[in-house]
C-alpha cells in the first residue's frame, strides 16, 4: 500500500500537481511589495506597520545558490534522523528569482557539496523528510536546474549585488 504524502508542517508550501510546480507559500505586503516566508513568521516591514493581514502568495520555485554547507553530524531533535549510519545533510541558502529573499533548504538526495557552487541555478522539489507506517512527511528541497538552462558559473558581481 502506498503511503499518503503530507507536508511535514502545514501551510509552508504547496505540493504541486503530481510534484510539478511546487511552491513555497509566502506573504506579501499591500502598501509595498515586501515578501515574507513563512507567510506569517517573517519579520514585518515597518512601513507595513498598520497592515494586520498579509496577502498569501506563491513564491518563485527557482533561484540561485547564495551559499551552501553540510550538517555533517546528526542534528538534534526535533530533526528526525532517517538513516543509520547518518548521511550528512547538504544545505543550500537560495536567493529566489523574484522576491529578493533567501530561503534555506536541503539539497535533493545524492547531491554532495562538490556538486555545488555559489550562483548555481536550482529549482524547488518536494521530497520525503521522514515517514511512519502510514505517511510520508514531505518538505521542500533544492535540486540543480538542468533542463532549460544549464548550470552556470555566476559572475562575481552578480552574486554580490544579489539581483
Amino acid at each position: 500500500m502506498t503511503k499518503t504524502q503530507v507536508p511535514a508542517v502545514e501551510g509552508l508550501f504547496t505540493m504541486g500537481d503530481d510534484g510539478e510546480d511546487p511552491r513555497l507559500i509566502g506573504g506579501k505586503g499591500g502598501a509595498r511589495d515586501s515578501y515574507f516566508f513563512p507567510k506569517n513568521m517573517g519579520g514585518n516591514d515597518p512601513a507595513l506597520f498598520g497592515e494586520t493581514e498579509r496577502a498569501e502568495v506563491l513564491l518563485s520555485n527557482t533561484g540561485t545558490i547564495w551559499s551552501f554547507t553540510t550538517s555533517s553530524y546528526p542534528p538534534p531533535k526535533p530533526y528526525v534522523i532517517t538513516t543509520e549510519p547518518f548521511v550528512p545533510i547538504v544545505i543550500a541558502a537560495v536567493e529566489l528569482d523574484n522576491e529578493k529573499l533567501v530561503v534555506l533548504g536541503q539539497m535533493a538526495p545524492g547531491i554532495v557539496v562538490e556538486d555545488l557552487h555559489v550562483g548555481m541555478r536550482v529549482k524547488m522539489i518536494i521530497d520525503v523528510l521522514y515517514e511512519d507506517d502510514d505517511h510520508q512527511y514531505m518538505v521542500w528541497k533544492w535540486e540543480p536546474e538542468t533542463s532549460g538552462s544549464e548550470t552556470q558559473k555566476p559572475e562575481a558581481s552578480a552574486v554580490q549585488e544579489g539581483n
Binding site: G29, R32, D33, S34, Y35, F36, F37, P38, G42, G43, D45, A47, A93, E95, E99, K100, L101, V102, V103, L104, G105, Q160, E161, G162, N163
Partner: peptide
C-alpha cells in the same frame, strides 16, 4: 539570513542584498 530563521528578510521593496 540570521539564526534561527529559515529565510532572510526580502529586500525587494527597500534595502539591499
Amino acid at each position: 539570513v540570521d539564526m534561527p530563521y529559515l529565510a532572510s528578510d526580502s529586500w525587494n521593496a527597500v534595502g539591499d542584498a
